[in-house]
């Protein structure tokens, strides 16, 4: 086996296909986006080089910062929601009856496509015939909210399906990580007299801290570039009240025919995601790795 792995040709054979795909599909387009961001281009006629004008415009664009604010809001909420996910995962690893059923229930939304989820929640939120408002009316609420049409609540209304969509994913990650903790450690703690609470917070959660860091990055970056549900459910409306950075980019490039500016927004979004990842890495860096042994 070692011999095979030291053969450079074989190594290249294994690595190259994936590398080429990655370069072609991810990195080359990123470079192109960066270049387009320096152009004035409507997507059809010839490009015109305008230097950093698009980026200057971007920094002064209140609509963009408005959408950035919404993205940050999603990122914060998503990160905060990781904590309940963790608790659920800890509970699931305990020996509770019906755990398997719950695990599948939590995982189910992850198997649905975003479009299906969006359609489902559109029906739930329908202002007159939606299940939510019907229920509220049954409870006696007279002025039921127009969930997706009211600028003051639309973001919250959009976040709930997103929460629901990704809960299973994070719970699954935590669950898998928690199951990997050797039973001997938990047993030793129990013999030393630790209660369930202590086992969870002093032993299990610290032991999976590396995984938690990864999920924080995933949640933040995922929220910053989130697009699909919002595009289908509100299309950034009403009047940009639910516009996020990715949908703003889309609107600029494809609706307003301003591919140059759209590319600039896209490239800036990439920078923001990189910076966010870097900051999270710095903030959560620990000197000593916590390990099983």
């Amino acid at each position: 086996m070692n011999k095979v792995m030291s053969n450079k040709l074989v190594l290249a054979l294994y690595v190259l296909p994936a590398l080429c795909l990655l370069l072609g599909i991810v990195y080359v387009p990123i470079v192109y986006t960066g270049i387009y961001g320096l152009m004035e281009w409507d997507g059809i006629s010839d490009m015109q080089f305008i230097g950093l004008d698009n980026y200057v415009k971007l920094l002064n664009d209140s609509s963009f910062w408005n959408s950035a604010k919404h993205s940050m809001y999603f990122a914060l909420l998503s990160t905060a929601s990781l904590f309940p996910y963790l608790l659920v995962a800890v509970l699931l690893t305990g020996n509770i009856r019906g755990v398997n059923v719950f695990r599948k229930i939590y995982l189910l939304p992850m198997l649905l496509s975003s479009v299906a989820i969006a359609q489902l929640w559109l029906k739930v939120y329908h202002p007159t015939s939606g299940i939510l408002n019907t229920f509220l009316e049954w409870l006696g609420v007279e002025q039921t909210p127009s969930w997706l049409a009211d600028p003051s609540i639309v973001l919250g209304a959009l976040f709930i399906p997103i929460l629901w969509q990704y809960a299973g994913f994070y719970i699954l990650i935590y669950y898998a990580a928690l199951r990997n903790i050797p039973a001997s450690i938990v047993e030793a703690a129990r013999i030393d007299g630790a209660n369930a609470w202590q086992i969870a917070f002093r032993i299990k959660i610290p032991l999976i801290s590396e995984i938690i860091k990864v999920t924080v990055v995933l949640a933040v970056v995922g929220s910053l570039k989130y697009f699909d549900l919002i595009y289908i459910m509100t299309d950034g409306g009403p009047n940009e009240a639910s516009e996020v950075m990715a949908s703003y980019m889309y609107h600029k490039a494809f609706r307003a025919f301003d591919f140059g500016y759209g590319s600039a927004v896209g490239f800036f979004l990439l920078l923001i995601c990189l910076v966010a990842t870097w900051i999270i890495r710095k903030l959560t860096a620990t000197k000593d790795k916590i390990q099983y042994s």
Partner: peptide, 21 residues
């Protein structure tokens, strides 16, 4: 206008008319 009109697509709005609501 119908409640929540700014959150309804044209197809959803049309359905309300076609349903006789």
């Amino acid at each position: 206008f119908i409640k929540g009109f700014n959150g309804l697509s044209n197809d959803e709005a049309k359905a309300e008319f076609l349903n006789g609501n």
